[in-house]
């Protein structure tokens, strides 16, 4: 839809063309769900964008100590976060695999793909929680420093979005279980897959930001005018 063309339309000019068309039979549920997902992704993007902007702004105050860059900072060696990232990437690949199965009508592959996606996502969440505990044991508490606060906050908000996705995906799993109708699954599974890939993308951005050295953060903040 070309919005500029739409906005140039002259509705007061009458045409009899529409009278000759067939009777309308209601909207397409799949298309409606896709539109809704686009809005959801836009809203979630705005949410994380705003968090990131506040992070960059707050990083320019003297008490901010980035979590990487010096030997005593926890993410100077970010291998644990790479491991967690791999888990989420596996979840993303698995759901894509399940989607492929549903497209080719293979129920077993669909179930296996979705189950693996749920499994890896749960594992990612547990691994993130374990990382929190580890940070705490190292003395990096939530209120100790704004960089710590942002780490806990952003990973929590990201995790909550994954949990929301899991609720929907669980619903899809139950529908596989009860319906055995693979055709009805394609559309919702496609939406879930898009959402999973999107959250992987968000995580990669957060990962890069939260493990950045002070110089990188300062450069980003300067680019934003802070």
């Amino acid at each position: 839809m070309n919005i500029l063309k739409v906005l140039r339309d002259k509705p007061w000019v009458h045409s009899t063309a529409s009278a000759t068309l067939e009777q309308y039979s209601g909207p397409d549920p799949v298309a409606a769900s896709q539109v809704m997902l686009r809005f959801v992704l836009a809203i979630v993007s705005v949410l994380f964008f705003l968090f990131i902007i506040t992070f960059l702004s707050r990083s320019q105050y003297p008490d901010f100590e980035a979590l990487a860059g010096s030997p005593w900072q926890p993410f100077t060696d970010s291998s644990r976060l790479w491991f967690n990232t791999a888990l989420l990437a596996c979840a993303s690949l698995a759901i894509q695999w399940g989607l492929g199965g549903s497209r080719s009508g293979k129920l077993n592959i669909t179930v296996a793909g979705i189950s693996a996606a749920v499994f890896f996502t749960l594992l990612f969440l547990v691994a993130q929680f374990d990382l929190w505990l580890r940070l705490q044991s190292m003395g990096f508490y939530l209120s100790g420093n704004p960089a710590n606060s942002y780490f806990y906050l952003l990973t929590a908000v990201h995790g909550l979005h994954l949990i929301g996705g899991l609720v929907v995906l669980t619903n899809v799993v139950f529908r596989v279980w009860y319906n055995h109708n693979i055709d009805s699954l394609k559309a919702p599974l496609q939406l879930c897959t898009t959402y999973w890939h999107f959250l992987l993308g968000v995580w990669l951005v957060l990962f890069a930001l939260l493990t950045s050295r002070p110089e990188t953060i300062n450069a980003l903040a300067a680019m934003c005018g802070f």
């Binding site: 068309l21 009777q23 209601g26 409606a32 539109v35």
Partner: peptide, 9 residues
């Protein structure tokens, strides 16, 4: 998505 037939934007 749910505008009826003929209801352009």
């Amino acid at each position: 998505q749910a505008r009826t037939h003929g209801m352009t934007l």
